[in-house]
Computed example of a mutant assay.
Amino acid sequence: MHDLQETYEMITNRFEEWKERQRLAGVEQGLEQGVEQGRAQGVEQGRLEGERALVLRQIQHRFGDLPAVYRLRLQSASQAELESLADRVLDATSLDELFL
């Protein structure tokens, strides 16, 4: 009976150790995934900000200082909108035409 109790305790302890290792492995995997997602989002954010800055420079070069109303629209522009502005700045004759 004593050996059976020791065996039970040993199995229980091993099982608890295994559960803890699995939990820690899950936490580590979750952290790695979170870091990777954060890195990818940061790269995308940086790319978008870089494109926004370039489009702003193009617009300012063509039309001069950008009024606040257009600057706000540029700040909230999506990737597709920025690409469209970058194309249209080549042919637009005014800021109003550019931001139609």
Score class of each variant (00 low, 15 high):
55 V>F: 03
73 R>Y: 05
76 S>A: 13
31 L>R: 11
26 G>C: 08
81 E>G: 03
79 Q>H: 12
33 Q>H: 12
63 F>V: 02
61 H>L: 10
54 L>C: 01
76 S>Q: 14
42 G>F: 08
31 L>I: 14
76 S>Y: 10
77 A>G: 02
57 R>N: 06
65 D>M: 09
36 E>S: 12
38 G>Y: 08
14 R>Q: 15
35 V>E: 10
30 G>L: 09
43 V>E: 13
44 E>G: 00
55 V>C: 00
47 R>F: 05
25 A>R: 12
47 R>P: 00
41 Q>G: 04
19 K>D: 14
14 R>Y: 15
35 V>L: 15
22 Q>D: 11
22 Q>V: 14
47 R>T: 02
29 Q>H: 12
59 I>P: 00
46 G>S: 04
18 W>V: 06
38 G>H: 07
19 K>T: 11
64 G>K: 06
36 E>F: 09
40 A>E: 14
37 Q>Y: 13
17 E>W: 09
66 L>V: 04
40 A>F: 04
69 V>G: 00
68 A>Y: 13
55 V>R: 01
17 E>M: 09
46 G>R: 04
40 A>I: 05
21 R>S: 14
31 L>F: 12
57 R>I: 00
51 E>A: 05
47 R>L: 11
70 Y>V: 01
70 Y>S: 01
17 E>S: 08
66 L>W: 06
28 E>A: 15
53 A>L: 12
79 Q>A: 11
68 A>P: 07
58 Q>H: 08
49 E>M: 12
33 Q>N: 11
47 R>H: 05
70 Y>E: 03
69 V>H: 10
46 G>V: 05
26 G>F: 09
67 P>Y: 03
67 P>V: 03
80 A>Y: 07
25 A>S: 13
77 A>F: 04
78 S>F: 06
53 A>C: 03
74 L>N: 02
47 R>D: 04
50 G>C: 04
40 A>G: 00
17 E>T: 08
67 P>I: 04
36 E>K: 14
27 V>L: 15
71 R>D: 10
28 E>G: 06
27 V>Q: 13
29 Q>T: 10
63 F>K: 01
73 R>Q: 14
27 V>W: 09
58 Q>M: 15
22 Q>C: 07
34 G>M: 07
59 I>D: 01
41 Q>F: 10
23 R>G: 02
46 G>H: 08
32 E>P: 00
28 E>S: 12
39 R>K: 11
34 G>C: 07
17 E>A: 12
20 E>C: 08
61 H>Q: 10
76 S>P: 01
61 H>Y: 11
82 L>R: 02
74 L>I: 02
36 E>D: 12
